[in-house]
Design a protein around this nucleic acid. Structure first.
Lengths: 247, 247
DNA sequence: GAGTGGTCTAGACCACCAA
DNA sequence: TGGTGGTCTAGACCACTCT
């Protein structure tokens, strides 16, 4: 109930909340805390690790234990406008890079989501959204073969081929290809990043990811694509406007 | 780059992913892993702590290191229907308890959100949403004085007083009080829980919270209330349906 | 009681960063 | 070079859970 490291982390947490140690500053060095509390090194480190896992601080070798700024959400996507309105909401230093693009076949999970048969041809794209030099969102997308072929015919753009230039808005292409999207269903949840996500987005410890699963609906109840968005949780938020019924 | 504990945690992570150690089972005991890798106890514990912070396992004294089931989201709220549709989406064992309800005055932050002057009278409510015996969502709500007074007059229900019985749907009361809500704006983000949230919702390590900030709009651009929803990240998700424009 | 994880120590060596 | 955090050890004692 009251381990030594818990008291230390509680004291430090309160000191941060009270405004000592403002964001960007450092906590007292480990040796200082060892003296102050009369404990061993590993006990202080455990206390600091607790705060790191809460996302409050980031220990950095040679520099000290840096207090994070937890209030700076600089990405603000509004899916009410089609999701990749990256340029609009994220500023001039935002960009998108298509890492992979390929024709492949749907596994069971994707087939279920898109209500197609397993093994159907689909286009899979993996894209990274940058803010400055940092990847802040990983977008994996599956487009039904029907829609991808229609786009290829109507616009001479093949969604399943890698392109040097970024063709921007897939939804515009869908409209030109007679598959205008009518609505999306987006489910938002959260979890901790796996090691590869942590590495790609250069995430400090104690920061979760915001996970969005999207399904795009087309004419006559058809399904056009499905996407998963994995966003760095301390930099991204999503806003929805929900109209309410009268009764 | 390749600390001993990193190799151990990587091995265990892969073993879990491969289907050895299915959800609910336990990892090998610490002494076994010490022997297998020829390392000290604290090294093994660090490896396991890494997995715990990723939300993959929960070590429990006397029982072992239990593999969590990361796929069981049992709460699924649809804000397209007014948010507290708890009974509909969460099953029969869901309930809501009002922990606090009071008339108070708006601080600067709440005043800004509701576009009222600081110090105005508002009603603040703190509610816990249960699933079975567990709190899975903490709801803090501020209702403008105008709206709360109108409800009190029209329905003889005072939102700012504690009630033994749960009056259910605030939006219905608003409609009866001539303040029908027309839309909500909901911003979703994520962070790690603070210690009090972790305690109230009995959250294991490595589980973030899903944070929703809601503003409810009323007739003629008025603002009726604002809420923060803090949901246990491994049990809750939210779904939005977004209509898309034609062009 | 036997086995599990939880806490803590005292000391060692290493990697990183600034001046 | 001196100070920072990062890793690791070998051993101790405690708290919890099941049988």
């Amino acid at each position: 109930m009251s381990a030594k490291y818990e008291k230390i982390s509680r004291d430090l947490r309160e000191a941060i909340a009270a405004g000592d140690h403002p964001p960007g500053s450092t906590l007292p060095p480990i040796p200082d805390l060892m003296d102050r509390y009369g404990v061993a090194r590993e006990t202080v480190r455990k206390a600091i690790a607790t705060l790191a896992n809460e996302g409050l601080v980031t220990p950095r070798s040679g520099l000290g234990t840096i207090v994070r700024d937890t209030s700076d959400v600089d990405l603000h996507s509004k899916p009410s406008e089609p999701h990749p309105v990256w340029g609009n909401t994220a500023g001039a230093d935002a960009k998108t890079v298509t890492v992979e693009a390929e024709w492949t076949t749907a596994d069971q999970e994707i087939a279920d989501l898109l209500k197609i048969t397993r093994g159907s041809e689909v286009v899979r794209r993996l894209r990274h959204y940058y803010k400055g030099r940092d990847v802040v969102l990983i977008h994996e997308q599956w487009i039904t073969g029907d829609v991808a072929r229609a786009i290829r015919s109507a616009t001479t753009y093949d969604p399943g081929a890698a392109h040097a230039d970024q063709p921007s808005d897939l939804y515009s292409l869908m409209r030109h290809a007679d598959h205008a999207p009518t609505a999306t269903t987006e489910t938002v949840t959260t979890r901790m990043p796996d090691p590869s996500e942590k590495e790609v987005m250069n995430m400090p410890p104690g920061v979760p990811v915001l996970l969005t699963l999207r399904i795009t609906h087309g004419p006559a109840g058809s399904l056009l694509e499905t996407s998963s968005f994995v966003a760095c949780g301390d930099r991204a938020s999503q806003t929805y406007t929900v109209p309410l019924p009268e009764n």
